[in-house]
Design a protein around this nucleic acid. Structure first.
Lengths: 338, 338
DNA sequence: GTGAAAGCGCTAACAG
DNA sequence: CTGTTAGCGCTTTCAC
């Protein structure tokens, strides 16, 4: 922040009027005469005056900035969320400070501290995989800085939340496979420690039981990466455990499965159908294209930000914490066409 | 920024000392007695005092914040750059405000204005595809806010730059194909309007001519997306124009080509070898895996930030603008194994 | 060793 | 219609 930047005082001095008059003229205050306004605005234009947001923040005790804590930007889903956040925030005249936790607890705590020091007016948080202690978030609430959690929420803090209905999405994905005539459906799931892992598995189980298909433990595997999927599928095939469908907990996993299956000579979707989760950049470019659940990251970002702004701007009256559940759409593509 | 947050005054009142003493005690000023320091620091801890970064910024006329203007976060390359930026910035005690231009000129101008108003101490910029006017950047320079351009730089502004050597990377990629015995190498390139498009094509041409292989206009196609690549390759094959290698301007394009080639019954890499560019998330998950140029986004981010911080922190003496050229590594994978 | 005062840039209550 | 004053939270001379 260099001294070079023009201030209100500079304008005032130049025009031989007071700083307050300049301030008022700039914001079109009704008290100020037309000529003064014109003169001030003209000079401001000429000298390229930019109001000092820092001074404003201090004065108003409101920074017009929201903080975002996000696990890892490189994931398509999270970067979509950010786009949604930015669009809504800028529209409302708010800046956005983004902090990556990189899936590390210590970093997340540091992020929280930074945002608090920066006096953000509110925060949007998706917790890291390794966060089990939530004191650093309580800190915001103690200081009346509203929080909205998105996607990866925390159980023991009362706050607004935006999540997607993992259970339902998993249910519908599995249902879709069943509807296409599959009965031996494998599930490549995430760790049960994460809520989303549990929810997706439970949705899968519900669809099976509803269709009267007994769950087969041999078909339920923990595999949530490209490599793990390859190994898991390889094992199934080598052990001659038959399956005609795969519901994977994310797209990379689905693609790992897909490749292994093809390499082993099975046809997709004819012999084995595949459904992924997250609908990232990959789903359109595999061969066949991948059926997947669209998590609507952009919408999640816009919605979370709207909820946060509502809290920030709500004058006084508190209202109870809200939880919004987004529907995730199953996008049917080539890997599961009937 | 709620009133709830503890200030230095609160601590002072509580301890019946002056605000200045508290301020000094908190930063371990030698003048202050041990007991006072202890008392202050203890209370600060207890009340969870967080220094108000906004007030500090105003006072120091230095926000300890850097601004980033980036085309689109959703691209793997750009999100890697951001990670590099954040790591270096946080290490140095700087915050980062990220603004997406979404490849739109107007948005970029608005971004620049926002960052100026926020009194960032410096900016990192990669211009949008549609930016041809650079006044909004001059504004920073007029106000002594240093700029470092990364990846997509601008010709007519004198400023630090970090770029990768597209020409050389393209040359080496093509060279690699030639070394593996290919002589009919197609180039799927980007629009010639962008510097990177030209550079990559020229690198390709140089490798050919150096090897005494005449360039064939039929093999030089403008195709820089998944779909365009599919159509371009389809056309080549249908027209019975023979080729045994493909150098594509990015990975999605390479993958489009790969799929079409495989679908037409040709073996990769045996009959046709493929090299992509950017080395994103895709390269490891195709079958065969994709040879590609690693653009080193993370390093670009760290380097650009180091250059920026150096400018910000360099007390007075100006030094001439620097341009750093990063080498891009060719990562050889299955699609071009000899 | 500690305190009082001024000021970073801006706004708003209070005077005139 | 415009100016004066005070203050947002903090640091930093300058006093004592």
């Amino acid at each position: 922040m260099k001294s070079g930047l023009v201030t209100i005082k500079d304008l005032a001095r130049e025009l031989n009027i007071s700083a307050s008059t300049v301030s008022r003229a700039l914001k079109d205050h009704p008290d100020i005469s037309k000529e003064t306004k014109r003169a001030v605005q003209e000079l401001a234009q000429k000298l390229n005056y930019q109001p000092n947001a820092v001074a404003l923040s201090l004065k108003q005790r409101r920074s017009n900035t929201i903080g975002v804590i996000i696990p890892e930007i490189v994931h398509y889903f999270f970067s979509s969320v950010i786009s949604g956040i930015e669009d809504v925030a800028y529209e409302a005249g708010f800046n956005v400070i983004i902090c990556q936790s990189n899936e590390r607890y210590e970093r997340e705590v540091a992020n929280a501290k930074t945002l608090l020091a920066s006096r953000v007016d509110g925060v949007l948080v998706s917790i890291s995989k390794h966060t089990t202690d939530y004191k650093h978030f309580k800190n915001f609430q103690n200081n009346e800085v509203p929080i909205v959690f998105y996607d990866r929420v925390v159980p023991d803090i009362i706050a607004d939340q935006v999540i997607i209905d993992d259970f339902d999405a998993a249910y519908r994905s599995t249902r879709h496979l069943i509807d296409s005539g599959r009965t031996r459906i494998a599930h490549l799931g995430g760790p049960m420690a994460l809520l989303i892992g549990q929810n997706r598995k439970n949705g899968y189980l519900k669809a099976l039981s509803e269709a009267g298909i007994p769950a087969d433990e041999n078909l339920i595997l923990e595999a949530d990466s490209f490599e793990k999927a390859r190994m898991a599928i390889m094992k199934l095939i080598n052990q001659k455990i038959k399956f005609d469908g795969v519901f994977a907990t994310n797209d990379l996993t689905a693609i790992g499965a897909m490749q292994t299956i093809q390499k082993k000579g099975y046809k997709i979707p004819d012999e084995i159908a595949i459904v992924g989760f997250s609908d990232g950049r990959f789903s359109g470019i595999t061969d066949p294209t991948l059926t997947s659940v669209d998590q609507h990251g952009y919408e999640m970002g816009t919605l979370a930000t709207q909820m946060l702004l509502k809290r920030i701007l709500s004058e006084d009256d508190e209202y109870p914490a809200e939880t919004k559940v987004l529907n995730a759409d199953l996008i049917v593509r080539g890997s599961s066409i009937i």
